[in-house]
Design a protein around this nucleic acid. Structure first.
Length: 570
DNA sequence: GCCGTTTTCGGCCCGACTGTTTTCAGTCG
């Protein structure tokens, strides 16, 4: 419901922009972003708090709240349908083509009756588009290229894939003598779970040379735009990358500007205005004079703010917290002492327990939990009781033999439709820690599913709920769940919720983490590694934790061995 | 249409690049 509504409002924004109506498009876009980043189902908000609740959503006022109400009640929004009637075009589909905006789309419809991607492609191939006023041959070619890109289904890339790619490009640029400084900005620096493109910032005394190199890197498939300070390329990996070059005195303000988020930046510039200053990517200006901009710290300080970590720059209260000196002290990577979910060859992993433990020790961990699947279900080579005994035997031996790393006897127990672990209670009580997780019956009704997890949380034999919402980014929807009730149940039963670090899971996600943190529910980080090379996935889960405002005290992996044992036996 | 340490009206972030034009509209982030 949330993303459906967000899409409708984005489309309304496009319609209004087509007619050159000022300011309203930005208002609808902001409302769409506000709805998209909600922590709760918008239907629940409406049911519990009515129109007043809706108006509390950032960017939503009286008029849009009423439209949301109308949609929840009738499944339709009259205003939207009238716009749609006037211009029966697939707006979001068309505007997903790079370089195609509302004005062009209007012209294309008015002159050529182009309604969707198929119409667009046909007209472009037949050479109709270049004949239009203010269009030309190049526009037509760009449209055809853009259509290819959309059709290739290239959308956002997982953080887990984009981060290594950006590192590689960063290293390439850093290897050039004309590059004085290179940094990856954008949503990647904010460590969002997926990124739409790579934003790279550089300081250089010879920008032309660096631009030239950037546009000719082996990863570049096509150059979309090339200028003195800004270029844009399409990478063979199916992602766009932008390079912006600024001078050293503008580095901080440029980094701030290109890191975003959009709403965070807008609010900062408003604050600058209120102080009679101007903030842009080149610095903070008092009249013509630059008074800050070398470093991000300086930019925030000049605006009367404490430095804000990139992960929480979402205009979700961080600016107010910064002003009042109430920012969280975000959990750091060097505070992590172990990994609490991984698999071995005993179930579906590809490495032995010894190999996993040795790799973990090399990272510097104090402990790991081996959490192979157990139970009757044949998923992922689940162990039966006899096999569990064998595994414990091996873990006991390794714990005696290996110094400096403790291996916990863990298990990932499948939860049935009532939230019961499918394994004997006698055995479960002997594990050091038990993860309960859902691997089947993903489509239960919301109330039943919520109760399923609450039951599991009330079970004294279960310590942690693993990947609580079951989503797989880009492939599987999260289970239908009242997340607040689940978090509440975790609190009441003093249980732990997992942040699964696997790049396509990241579950709980940032917004859920923030609710858990606010309620004081403890969280665990588990990579769900199936081989040693996956242990570094921890940083992706940690990034989500930071995006959810988690501090050291919120993450059980920050406890030392003794402290953690105590928590697990409670 | 939204919003308020200039509050219920009058503002609304800011600049680079492209392509089609001879000064700028459109798009993007």
């Amino acid at each position: 419901m949330n993303s459906q509504l967000a899409k409708i409002f984005l489309e309304i924004a496009e319609y209004l922009a087509m007619d050159n109506i000022p300011f309203k498009p930005a208002a609808y876009e902001k409302a769409a972003r506000g709805i998209e980043s909600l922590k709760k189902d918008i239907e629940d908000i409406y049911r519990e708090e009515g129109l007043d609740g809706l108006e509390k959503i950032p960017g939503v006022g009286k008029s849009i709240a009423e439209k949301i109400e109308e949609y929840i009640r009738t499944g339709k929004i009259k205003y939207y349908q009238e716009l749609k009637k006037e211009y029966p075009v697939s707006l979001l589909e068309l505007s997903s083509v790079e370089g195609l905006g509302p004005k062009h789309i209007k012209t294309l419809y008015d002159k050529l009756e182009i309604k969707d991607l198929a119409d667009l492609e046909k007209a472009a191939r037949e050479g109709e588009i270049e004949k239009l006023p203010r269009f030309g041959k190049k526009v037509q070619e760009n449209i055809l290229r853009g259509i290819e890109f959309v059709k290739a289904g290239q959308g956002r890339m997982l953080l887990g894939s984009a981060l290594p790619l950006s590192e590689k490009i960063k290293q390439r640029l850093e290897g050039r003598e004309e590059a004085e400084k290179v940094e990856v900005a954008g949503s990647l620096r904010r460590m969002k779970e997926t990124v739409g493109d790579l934003d790279i910032l550089a300081v250089s005394g010879k920008p032309e040379k660096l631009m030239e190199y950037f546009c000719s890197m082996p990863e570049v498939e096509a150059v979309l735009a090339k200028g003195e300070t800004k270029s844009s390329v399409r990478l063979v990996q199916g992602l766009d990358a932008d390079l912006r070059i600024v001078s050293a005195e503008s580095y901080g303000s440029a980094l701030q500007y290109f890191t975003g988020s959009k709403d965070h930046g807008i609010k900062l510039r408003r604050i600058a205005q209120e102080k009679g200053l101007k903030l842009n990517e080149y610095g903070i200006f008092k009249g013509e004079k630059q008074i800050a901009g070398q470093s991000e710290e300086e930019v925030y300080e000049t605006l009367g703010l404490k430095y804000i970590n990139p992960e929480i720059r979402e205009d979700a209260g961080e600016i107010e917290a910064s002003r009042n000196n109430k920012l969280p002290k975000l959990v750091n990577y060097d505070e992590i002492k172990g990994d609490l979910q991984m698999h071995s060859t005993w179930s579906d992993g590809s490495a032995s327990i010894r190999e996993m433990a040795q790799a973990a020790k090399k990272i510097g961990y104090e402990y790991i939990a081996i959490t192979d699947h157990i139970g009757k279900l044949k998923i992922a080579g689940a162990l039966d009781e006899q096999e569990v005994l064998g595994q414990w035997n091996e873990i006991d031996k390794l714990n005696k033999e290996l110094d400096g790393i403790k291996i916990f006897k863990g298990a990932e127990a499948d939860l049935d439709e009532k939230g019961r672990p499918e394994f004997s209670e006698e055995f479960l009580s002997k594990f050091d820690l038990v993860l309960g997780s859902i691997h089947s019956k993903f489509r239960m009704a919301k109330d039943d599913m919520t109760q399923r997890l609450i039951n599991a949380l009330e079970n004294p034999l279960i310590n942690i709920i693993a990947h609580p919402t079951g989503r797989i980014i880009g492939r599987r929807e999260a289970i239908s769940l009242d997340i607040e009730k689940v978090i509440e149940a975790a609190k009441e039963n003093k249980k732990i919720l997992e942040i699964n670090c696997y790049p396509d899971r990241l579950d709980l996600k940032d917004q859920h983490i923030r609710i858990a943190v606010e309620k004081g529910v403890r969280l665990s980080l588990g990579t769900d590694s199936h081989s040693p090379d996956q242990l570094p996935y921890l940083k992706f889960g940690l990034a989500q934790a930071r995006r959810g405002w988690a501090e050291r005290k919120d993450i059980v992996n920050c406890l030392n061995l003794g402290e953690l044992k105590k928590v697990l036996t409670n």
